[in-house]
Computed example of a mutant assay.
Amino acid sequence: MNVLVTPRSFGKTDPSLFERLRAAGLTVTRNDTGSVLDAATMRRLLADCEGLIVGVDPVTADVLDAAPRLRAVAKYGVGVDNIDLEACAARGIAVSRTLGAPTQAVADYALALMLAVARKVTLIDRRCRSRDWSKITSVDLYGKTLGIIGLGAIGKAVAKRAQGFSMRILAHDIYWDDAYAAQNGIERADMDRICAEADVISLHTLLDDSTRHCINAARLASMKPTAILINTARGELVDNAALLDALREGRIYGAGLDVFEQEPPVDDAWYTLDNLVMGSHCSSSTRGATETMGHMAVDNLLRDLGLSQA
Results as ranks from 00 to 15, higher is better:
residue 161 R to C: 06
residue 208 D to W: 12
residue 133 W to S: 00
residue 206 L to A: 15
residue 199 D to R: 02
residue 302 L to D: 09
residue 25 G to V: 14
residue 179 A to P: 00
residue 124 I to Y: 10
residue 122 T to R: 08
residue 103 T to R: 03
residue 15 P to L: 03
residue 121 V to Q: 07
residue 143 G to I: 01
residue 206 L to T: 14
residue 178 D to V: 14
residue 252 I to S: 08
residue 292 T to I: 08
residue 134 S to H: 14
residue 166 S to G: 12
residue 184 N to P: 13
residue 3 V to D: 01
residue 55 G to T: 12
residue 53 I to E: 10
residue 241 A to W: 00
residue 310 A to L: 13
residue 265 P to Y: 05
residue 297 A to R: 09
residue 204 H to G: 13
residue 265 P to V: 05
residue 129 R to V: 07
residue 155 G to L: 11
residue 7 P to M: 01
residue 131 R to T: 09
residue 4 L to W: 08
residue 271 Y to K: 00
residue 135 K to Q: 06
residue 290 T to M: 07
residue 20 R to L: 05
residue 306 G to N: 06
residue 171 A to M: 04
residue 40 A to G: 09
residue 113 L to R: 00
residue 170 L to H: 06
residue 162 A to E: 07
residue 280 S to G: 11
residue 290 T to S: 13
residue 28 V to N: 13
residue 39 A to Q: 11
residue 243 L to D: 10
residue 105 A to G: 08
residue 232 T to D: 14
residue 144 K to A: 13
residue 39 A to R: 02
residue 190 D to Y: 05
residue 45 L to F: 08
residue 277 V to M: 10
residue 88 C to L: 03
residue 118 A to L: 02
residue 285 S to F: 14
residue 215 I to G: 15
residue 29 T to A: 15
residue 133 W to G: 00
residue 123 L to W: 06
residue 128 C to D: 03
residue 110 A to V: 08
residue 261 E to W: 12
residue 155 G to I: 14
residue 87 A to N: 07
residue 257 L to W: 00
residue 252 I to Y: 12
residue 51 G to V: 05
residue 216 N to Y: 01
residue 14 D to P: 01
residue 25 G to Q: 11
residue 291 E to L: 07
residue 104 Q to K: 10
residue 63 V to S: 04
residue 51 G to F: 13
residue 102 P to D: 08
residue 23 A to Q: 15
residue 204 H to Y: 02
residue 127 R to F: 09
residue 43 R to Q: 13
residue 30 R to A: 10
residue 81 D to T: 03
residue 111 L to F: 14
residue 257 L to S: 02
residue 207 L to Y: 08
residue 32 D to F: 10
residue 274 D to G: 11
residue 50 E to Q: 14
residue 204 H to W: 00
residue 6 T to W: 11
residue 84 D to S: 00
residue 170 L to D: 10
residue 54 V to T: 15
residue 120 K to M: 00
residue 147 G to V: 12
residue 165 F to W: 09
residue 39 A to N: 05
residue 104 Q to T: 13
residue 144 K to R: 10
residue 186 I to W: 01
residue 163 Q to I: 12
residue 210 S to E: 08
residue 128 C to K: 03
residue 228 I to D: 04
residue 86 E to P: 11
residue 10 F to W: 01
residue 181 A to F: 07
residue 245 D to G: 09
residue 42 M to G: 14
residue 21 L to H: 09
residue 279 G to P: 12
residue 179 A to T: 08
residue 273 L to S: 12
residue 241 A to T: 04
residue 280 S to Y: 04
residue 241 A to E: 05
residue 7 P to E: 07
residue 74 A to T: 10
residue 287 R to V: 14
residue 166 S to H: 05
residue 169 I to G: 02
residue 301 L to D: 07
residue 29 T to R: 15
residue 302 L to A: 10
residue 284 S to W: 08
residue 72 A to E: 02
residue 288 G to P: 06
residue 90 A to S: 04
